[in-house]
Every structure is written in structure tokens, then in C-alpha cells.
């Protein structure tokens, strides 16, 4: 695939906005998301020869981001506790009280913070299906789980999130 390597690189660049959004939904922080995407891209390029031309590049890339994320979560949980989520919520609450005009933005930040509190396996699915708009089937392929698992996990995540959002008394959009 010599001639198409540059094309593949360009296609990966084309996927970067979606990959960044996916990574943001996974990590809850943009800086971490970009680091994650970067590590995943380096991994992908290193094994570019393993990509089967003709298969979906987006699924392949999402999978690499997701496994890279899981690797990092595992190594981090061995190190220290993650306090990001709480900081985020506090900052949001402060913002929302002081600036009425940023309410809508704060609302979105609260949603992200609540998603951040979900277990990683539920967050992945929300990120793939709801945020990215993948079909259940594609998400099942990315995560390597049966479609039934996708549905039950996703429904659980969304119901949990719905009640968390109600508790947070987030303004309806």
C-alpha cells in the first residue's frame, strides 16, 4: 500500500475532530484528550501495515484510541486518584452562579462532568453511539462486545445519566 500511505495519513487527519471528541468524552479533559489522541495516532502509524485497506478506518482508529485509553486508565489507577471530576463540577457551579449568560455553557459542562462520573465502559458507549453517532453494530465492533451488551450497557448508562442530570437540576434545553 505504498502509494496510499499518504492518503491514509490524510484520512486519519480527517478523523482527528471525531477522535478528539471521542477522547474528550472518555477523559473529560481536552488536554488529556489530545494527549490520548496523539498516543493513539502514533500507535496507529506504527502498525499502519496492519490496517486492512477496504475496512473502516474510523472503527480501527476509534478502537486504538479506546484501548490506549483503557491502558492509561489502568496504569493511572495504580498511581493516584483522579480528582478532575470534582474540580470540574465546582468550577461549573461557580460559573453558573456568577454568570447567568454562561448558563447554557455551564449546563453542557455539567453534562460532561456527569458523564465523567460514569464507569469507563459506559462512557465509551455513550461516546461512540450518542456523541459520535455510530450504529450499535459499529460500536460493538469497536469495543469487541456483542450487540446485546452494547444495548444493555448503553441503556444503563443513559438511565443513570438521566437521573444524575435530574439531581443536578440542570436547566432543560
Amino acid at each position: 500500500m505504498t502509494g496510499s500511505e499518504t492518503e491514509l495519513r490524510l484520512q486519519i487527519v480527517a478523523l482527528l475532530p471525531r477522535l478528539r471528541r471521542f477522547a474528550f468524552a472518555l477523559t473529560g479533559r481536552q488536554d488529556e484528550a489530545d494527549d490520548l489522541v496523539q498516543s493513539a495516532c502514533l500507535k496507529a502509524l506504527d502498525r499502519l501495515s496492519q490496517y486492512e485497506v477496504g475496512t473502516r478506518l474510523d472503527s480501527w482508529m476509534f478502537k486504538i484510541v479506546q484501548t490506549t485509553f483503557l491502558d492509561e486508565v489502568r496504569s493511572r489507577s495504580r498511581r493516584a486518584k483522579d480528582t478532575v471530576v470534582n474540580e470540574d463540577i465546582n468550577a461549573v457551579g461557580f460559573d453558573a452562579r456568577i454568570h447567568e449568560r454562561t448558563e447554557a455553557r455551564a449546563d453542557l459542562a455539567i453534562i460532561r462532568a456527569k458523564i465523567n462520573e460514569l464507569p469507563a465502559e459506559q462512557r465509551e458507549l455513550l461516546a461512540l453511539v450518542v456523541v459520535d453517532g455510530m450504529s450499535y453494530q459499529s460500536a460493538a465492533e469497536v469495543l469487541d462486545v456483542p450487540i446485546g451488551t452494547v444495548m444493555s450497557r448503553l441503556a444503563r448508562a443513559r438511565k443513570k445519566l438521566a437521573s444524575a442530570l435530574q439531581d443536578a437540576a440542570v436547566h432543560a434545553i
Binding site: V13, R20, R112, V131
Partner: peptide, 21 residues
């Protein structure tokens, strides 16, 4: 809620991809 969740990540989608990436 799907709409709201999606909306929460739109700014990321639209923000410039860093050059280093």
C-alpha cells in the same frame, strides 16, 4: 438527553485541531 449529550461535545468537534497532532 441524546441531543444534550451530543451538544456537550460540539465545541470540541468544532475547535481547531492542534498542529502538533
Amino acid at each position: 438527553n441524546a441531543e444534550r449529550i451530543k451538544a456537550a461535545y460540539v465545541p470540541t468537534l468544532n475547535s481547531a485541531v492542534p498542529d502538533k497532532l
